[in-house]
């Protein structure tokens, strides 16, 4: 049994280090789709998080609770919703995005946005008001003041980005339903792991799993280092 495990691990490492085109195509699809979804969602989500933290407008309470709820919706439900929107009969059917990377990006945006908004709202709510006041009284413009506050909150904001990215990079349900798991087109790491495991090709599944594991380790250790350097603020 142990020998079997070792052999599988060796095969998996072989696939990774021999730059197996199938494996790296899957990794490439995964990263390009998830980076695109994160890139498109990031700024609007942060702005909404900022507005929810500092703004006082009608419906703020409702939006805040809606965002919290959306965070906990299973990705297959979001996948179903996006599928129904993109199907020929759906409101976005004319776009013909179903079973394409664009469709996957749309689905991942809907998964990523609530995480980014909720976590950035929490970060902005926790900011020391003096940071904004000091920046402005020293002559910073409104925009420069915001940049200063974001810099002061770089650790919690980076944590929000990492959490959002991790959620979309590892989700299966939405990618499977909207992407269709088409080789070299919409097959990403989680859908490929599910497929290869069901076929009994554990080596490729382990190789892809290792990519996710290594990425997760790198991201978390980087965040841990940043968090360690950030000292608690006192008067």
């Amino acid at each position: 049994m142990n020998e079997g495990w070792l052999a599988l691990l060796q095969q998996a490492l072989g696939l990774l280090f021999s730059l197996d085109p199938d494996v790296w195509s899957i990794v490439s699809v995964s990263f390009s789709v998830s980076f695109a979804a994160l890139g498109i969602t990031l700024l609007p989500s942060m702005i909404l998080g900022f507005m929810l933290a500092f703004g006082r407008f009608p419906g703020r309470w409702f939006v805040t609770n809606l965002i919290q709820t959306l965070q906990s919706i299973p990705t297959v439900v979001i996948g179903l919703l996006v599928y129904l929107m993109l199907t020929r009969m759906g409101p976005l059917g004319d776009l013909r995005w179903l079973f394409t990377q664009k469709g996957m990006i749309l689905g991942q945006m809907m998964i990523c946005a609530p995480v980014l908004v909720a976590m950035s709202q929490a970060a902005f709510t926790s900011v020391d008001r003096r940071a904004w006041e000091t920046s402005r009284t020293l002559g910073a413009s409104w925009f420069r003041g915001i940049l200063t506050v974001c810099r002061e909150l770089k650790v919690p904001l980076l944590m929000a980005i990492v959490a959002g990215f991790s959620r979309i990079l590892t989700e299966v349900g939405c990618s499977m339903m909207v992407g269709g798991n088409i080789a070299d087109v919409t097959r990403n790491i989680p859908t490929a792991i599910a497929l290869e495991t069901s076929k009994g090709d554990f080596a490729q599944a382990i190789a892809l799993g290792l990519v996710l594991l290594i990425l997760s380790l790198v991201l978390n250790f980087t965040l841990g280092t940043l968090r360690g350097k950030a000292e608690p603020r006192s008067h």
């Binding site: 020391d128 003096r130 940071a131 006041e133 000091t134 920046s135 402005r136 009284t137 020293l138 002559g139 910073a140 200063t148 810099r151 002061e152 770089k154 950030a230 008067h235």
Partner: peptide, 26 residues
Amino acid sequence: LLGKAVYLHQHPYLFDGSVEYNLSYP
């Protein structure tokens, strides 16, 4: 009004970074 008179808090806020960074901020 903002930026016309510099206001220093009772417990001044120093930005995350070195002493030099804080002096070069303005």
